[in-house]
C-alpha cells in the first residue's frame, strides 16, 4: 500500500478540519480526493506530508510511518501545491532545477531530468522566462514541473488546475495520466467532479473532514438510487400534469420552470420513452430532449443533500 491513513483527526482551534479521516491508496492508482471548498482536502494532504501536526491517527507511506524527518520517504514523493510555490526571482529552468536539486544531487542526471520536465509540461519556449511573465496556465504547468521533475513514485497534486483555461487543463490532465502510465501513483484533489471522473481510477468523496464514500466512479454511482436525469423543453405544462409525471414509475422527482421540465429517475429502463409517451398523450408539443447519466454531483447530492459547488 502506498498511502495508509487511519482515523486522522485535525483541529484548528474549535474547527474540526479532519474528523476520523481514513484513506488507503494502492500502488499504480490514480486516486481522486473530491470535496467542496473547505472540506479538508489540503489539510489532509498537509498532514500526510507531515507539514502539519495532527491530533490523532496514523499515517504510513510506502509501509513506513511518515514523520517530518522521514527523508527516505520524502525522497520518493513529488508534490504540487495548491498555491503556486516558485521563486519569482528565478527563471523557469532555474526553478525546476532548484526543486529537482533538492532530490537529485548528480548534476548530469539532473540536467536531463530538468530538460525532460520542461518538455513534459511544454515550457520549451519559456525556459528563460521569469514566473511574473507567465500566464496563469503556464505558471501552473511550471508548478507541476517543479513537483515532478525528480520522477517520484508517488505524486500528490492539490488542485493543480485551479484558474486554468480548459485547454491547459486538458493537457495537464493528460500529462497526469502519462505520469501514471510511467509508473507513478497519483493522488489528485479537486472540487471539479468532471476532472476526477475523467482521470481517476478510484475516488474518495469527502465533506467537512469526513470520508463520505470511496470506490470507482461506477461503484459510487451504483451506491445511489438516483439514475439518469431527463430534461425536456416545453411550454404550457399544467400543475396536475406535473403531478402525474411525478407519479410515473421510477420517477423520483420533477421540476418545471415554465420552459424546461427536469425529471429525476432511479435505475429502470425506458424512462425517457415512457415520459415522452405521456407528453404526446397530453398533446403537449416539446422541443429539445436530453437524457443525462448520473454524475458524481448526484452522488454527492444524495449523500449530503447539497451540490458539490454551491
Amino acid at each position: 500500500m502506498v498511502i495508509n491513513v487511519q482515523n486522522l483527526v485535525k483541529r484548528y482551534g474549535n474547527l474540526l478540519a479532519l474528523d476520523h479521516f481514513s484513506l488507503q491508496i494502492e500502488e499504480g492508482e490514480v486516486f481522486g480526493l473530491l470535496g467542496p471548498n473547505g472540506s479538508g482536502k489540503t489539510t489532509a494532504i498537509n498532514c500526510i506530508l507531515s507539514l502539519l501536526k495532527y491530533d490523532k491517527g496514523t499515517i504510513e507511506i510506502f509501509g513506513k510511518p511518515m514523520r517530518p524527518d522521514a527523508y527516505s520517504i520524502k525522497q520518493d514523493i513529488g508534490i504540487v501545491m495548491q498555491n503556486v510555490a516558485v521563486f519569482q526571482e528565478l527563471s523557469v529552468q532555474e526553478n525546476i532545477d532548484y526543486f529537482c536539486g533538492l532530490y537529485v544531487k548528480d548534476r548530469q542526471k539532473r540536467r536531463e531530468l530538468v530538460e525532460e520536465a520542461i518538455e513534459f509540461v511544454g515550457l520549451q519556449d519559456f525556459r528563460k522566462f521569469h514566473p511574473k511573465k507567465l500566464s496563469g496556465g503556464l505558471l501552473r504547468r511550471l508548478n507541476i514541473a517543479c513537483g515532478i521533475a525528480h520522477k517520484p513514485r508517488l505524486i500528490i497534486l492539490d488542485e493543480p488546475t485551479v484558474a486554468v483555461d480548459p485547454q491547459s487543463r486538458n493537457s495537464i490532465l493528460e500529462g497526469i495520466l502519462k505520469l501514471n502510465q510511467q509508473g507513478a501513483t497519483i493522488v489528485y484533489t479537486s472540487h471539479y467532479m468532471e476532472e476526477v471522473e475523467q482521470i481517476c481510477s478510484r475516488i474518495v468523496i469527502m465533506d467537512k473532514g469526513k470520508t463520505l464514500a470511496t470506490g470507482t466512479k461506477e461503484q459510487l454511482k451504483g451506491m445511489i438510487k438516483g439514475g439518469e436525469t431527463l430534461t425536456v423543453e416545453l411550454f404550457g405544462l399544467k400543475e396536475e400534469q406535473l403531478e402525474a409525471i411525478r407519479r410515473l414509475p421510477h420517477v423520483t422527482g420533477a421540476e418545471y420552470d415554465g420552459t424546461r421540465l427536469t425529471v429525476h429517475c432511479s435505475g429502470g429502463a425506458h424512462n425517457l420513452i415512457r415520459l415522452l409517451d405521456y407528453l404526446r398523450g397530453q398533446e403537449l408539443s416539446f422541443g429539445r430532449v436530453y437524457a443525462e447519466p448520473p454524475t458524481l454531483n448526484d452522488v454527492f447530492l444524495e449523500i449530503t443533500g447539497k451540490h458539490l459547488r454551491d
Partner: peptide, 18 residues
C-alpha cells in the same frame, strides 16, 4: 522574505532535506 514565503517554505519542507 523570499525564503520565508509560506508556500516556498512548505515546499522546501517536503524535500528530503532537514
Amino acid at each position: 522574505m523570499v525564503f520565508n514565503q509560506p508556500d516556498l517554505r512548505r515546499r522546501n519542507l517536503c524535500a528530503p532535506l532537514p
